[in-house]
């Protein structure tokens, strides 16, 4: 049994999805969609972007599976692809440097009156490059080398950014007390 078969995607499912079979694609979505959506949401910070990221990942999955080597875990490969797409979207969003009328729609209301409000606000206020490292390292559990690979930076730069992100978070949280 291959690693893929033990990680949420049977070989048969993956082979079928590779041909564009909607049933297989739906089955993979049901297994991995929620996890990937959460990752995309944490990286992009908005429900609309997270939705678009997961949409694009699954629409492009059959073709991308042609390059999947089936040596590592399928779930982990899929998460890395999703992280890449989310980071590309962050980059495009930064390039656009504008918020359209629809994009300003608060699709997820902030958790008012919650003890986590301050932390959520502090994380949201981080610049995208720092938040990306924080999410990938501290929440998703990637190593600095893996974070570096995903972001196109060195492992050392990843450490520096995490340190900056943590310092900013601490300062924001302490200032808010």
């Amino acid at each position: 049994m291959s690693a893929a078969a033990t990680s949420g995607g049977s070989e048969a499912q993956i082979d079928a999805a590779r041909t564009g079979d909607p049933e297989a694609l739906a089955s993979l979505y049901r297994t991995h969609g929620a996890v990937l959506y959460r990752l995309a949401y944490r990286l992009t910070g908005t429900a609309q972007d997270a939705e678009d990221v997961v949409h694009d990942v699954f629409v492009g999955l059959p073709k991308a599976l042609g390059r999947y080597e089936e040596r590592g875990s399928f779930a982990s490969w899929l998460k890395r692809v999703t992280a890449r797409v989310a980071l590309m979207r962050l980059r495009a969003r930064t390039r656009r440097r504008e918020v359209g009328i629809e994009a300003t729609l608060p699709t997820v209301a902030p958790p008012f009156d919650s003890a986590t409000v301050a932390l959520r606000a502090a994380v949201d206020a981080l610049p995208d490059p720092l938040r990306a490292v924080l999410v990938l390292k501290e929440i998703e559990g990637y190593s600095h080398a893996e974070v570096g690979e995903l972001l196109g930076i060195s492992a050392g730069a990843s450490r520096v950014r995490l340190n900056r992100a943590m310092r900013r978070l601490r300062k924001t949280l302490e200032d808010g007390r």
Partner: peptide
Amino acid sequence: ELRKLPVPDPPDELLARIL
């Protein structure tokens, strides 16, 4: 707490949109 920050679930219609 950072790891436990609430994250929404994907909308129900997302799979239909993908397909």
